[in-house]
C-alpha cells in the first residue's frame, strides 16, 4: 500500500544525485563529438569533408595570390555528425570532446575553425600541387618517394623515362620538345 511513501523515504535517505556541474567540471564521455578540429599540417585539400558536410559548414577558398587555401569550419552551422572526420583520409579533421561552445551573440562570426593550408610544390618543376604532408607520404608515397612529390606532368615524364631504355639522343630530343 502507498508505494510512493517508500520511494520518498528512500529518496530522502539516498541524498541528491545532482552533478556539481556549473560549479565544477562536468564528466565528458569518451568518443563524445564536440567541436571539430582541423589540423592544417595534415590536410591534403582533397575536399571530401566539404563534400560530405550535411550542414554546409565547411568553406574552402583559394586566396588571392594563389599560394594556398583558406579553410573555414563554422561551428554555428556544424551539426556535429562527424561525417567529415569519418571520411577524412589523413585524419586532419577530428571531433574533439570540447563542448564549451556557448558564446555571446555578438561573437557569432568569431566561433569558427580558421586555418590556412599552403599548396605544395612539385619537387622538380616547382609547379602548384596539392600539399604533401608527412601523413600522406607515409600512407601512399613510400614505394616511389621521389615521384610522389611531383606534379602530374613531371610524374608522367618520369614514368615515361623509366619505361623507355635510356638512350642519350631520345632523352635530349624529349627535353627539347618541352
Amino acid at each position: 500500500m502507498l508505494p510512493f511513501l517508500k520511494i520518498m523515504v528512500k529518496n530522502l535517505l539516498a541524498g541528491p544525485s545532482t552533478e556539481a556541474f556549473p560549479f565544477a567540471p562536468a564528466h565528458t564521455p569518451a568518443r563524445f563529438r564536440g567541436k571539430a578540429n582541423h589540423d592544417k599540417n595534415k590536410c591534403i585539400l582533397c575536399g571530401i569533408c566539404r563534400h560530405v558536410c550535411a550542414a554546409g559548414a565547411i568553406q574552402m577558398r583559394v586566396v588571392e595570390d594563389g599560394s594556398g587555401v583558406e579553410y573555414v569550419l563554422w561551428h554555428n552551422s556544424c551539426v556535429f555528425c562527424g561525417l567529415c572526420a569519418h571520411y577524412c583520409p589523413t585524419k586532419a579533421l577530428t571531433m574533439t570532446d570540447d563542448w564549451h561552445l556557448a558564446h555571446r551573440g555578438e561573437d557569432r562570426f568569431a566561433v569558427r575553425e580558421d586555418s590556412f593550408v599552403r599548396y605544395g610544390q612539385c619537387s622538380t618543376c616547382g609547379a602548384r600541387i596539392q600539399p604533401r604532408p608527412a601523413v600522406i607520404v607515409e600512407a601512399l608515397g613510400t614505394r616511389y618517394p621521389d615521384r610522389f612529390m611531383m606534379c602530374p606532368s613531371c610524374k608522367r615524364e618520369s614514368l615515361a623515362k623509366r619505361s623507355v631504355p635510356a638512350k642519350p639522343d631520345m632523352e635530349t630530343s624529349e627535353t627539347s620538345d618541352e
Binding site: 552533478e19 562536468a26 561551428h75 556535429f80 555528425c81 563542448w99 561552445l101 556557448a102 558564446h103 566561433v111
Partner: peptide
C-alpha cells in the same frame, strides 16, 4: 544574446 551551438547541445552546455 547568447548562442549555444550543438545539434542538439548537451544539457551541461
Amino acid at each position: 544574446d547568447v548562442i549555444v551551438p550543438g545539434c542538439p547541445p548537451r544539457p551541461q552546455a
